[in-house]
Amino acid sequence: MSSHSLPSQTARLFGSTPSVPPDVRFLLVPLPTFNMLPFGSFLDKLRFSADEEDFSEQKYCSWDIAGLSDGDVVSSSGVHLSIKLAFEHVNLAQYDYVVVFGGRSAGQMKAMAPLYSAFFKKAVARGVTLVTVDNACFTLASLGLLDGCEVAVHWRHLQEFETDFPTLKARADQLYCIDGKRISCAGGTAVIELAIELLAGLCGRERALKGLADMLIDETRSRNHYLKSLGGDVNKAHQHNRHVSRTISLMRQNLSVPLSIEELSRKLGLSRRQLDRVFLKELAVRPREYWATMRMTHAHWRLQNSFYSLADIAHEVSFTDVSYFCKVFKKHFGYSPTQLKKIEK
Rank of each mutant, 00 (worst) to 15 (best):
H154V: 06
K236A: 10
L230Y: 12
R273F: 11
A152M: 04
P21D: 15
S69V: 10
V74L: 01
F161C: 13
Y335M: 14
V128K: 09
I313C: 06
G204C: 06
L140T: 07
N224G: 00
E344A: 13
S336N: 00
S16E: 15
G232R: 05
F55I: 09
E160M: 14
K169S: 08
A86P: 15
S5W: 11
T338P: 01
E162Y: 00
R205P: 05
E219P: 07
Q304T: 10
P337I: 11
S49H: 10
M296D: 04
V98Q: 08
S5Y: 14
D72N: 09
M112H: 03
Y95S: 00
T129G: 05
F119P: 03
G201F: 01
L275A: 07
E206Q: 14
R302H: 11
F34P: 12
A66H: 05
A292P: 01
E262V: 01
R252P: 03
A152Y: 03
D70G: 07
E197G: 02
R221P: 01
L283G: 01
P30R: 11
E344K: 12
L216F: 15
T247A: 15
N235A: 14
S271R: 13
G144K: 04
R104H: 12
A186K: 13
A66D: 03
V244G: 02
V73E: 00
C177K: 04
F329V: 11
R12H: 04
R246Q: 13
R286M: 12
L28K: 00
A172W: 02
E263H: 07
H332F: 05
Q304L: 13
S260P: 05
L85S: 01
S318T: 07
I183P: 02
S3V: 11
T297Y: 10
D214R: 15
G201Y: 06
R242A: 10
S77I: 03
E262Q: 10
K45Y: 00
V131E: 06
L46S: 06
A292E: 11
Q108W: 12
V20H: 11
F325H: 02
S260I: 04
Y116W: 15
L216M: 08
Q108I: 01
R288I: 09
S256G: 15
A213S: 13
L209W: 06
Y308F: 14
Q9L: 12
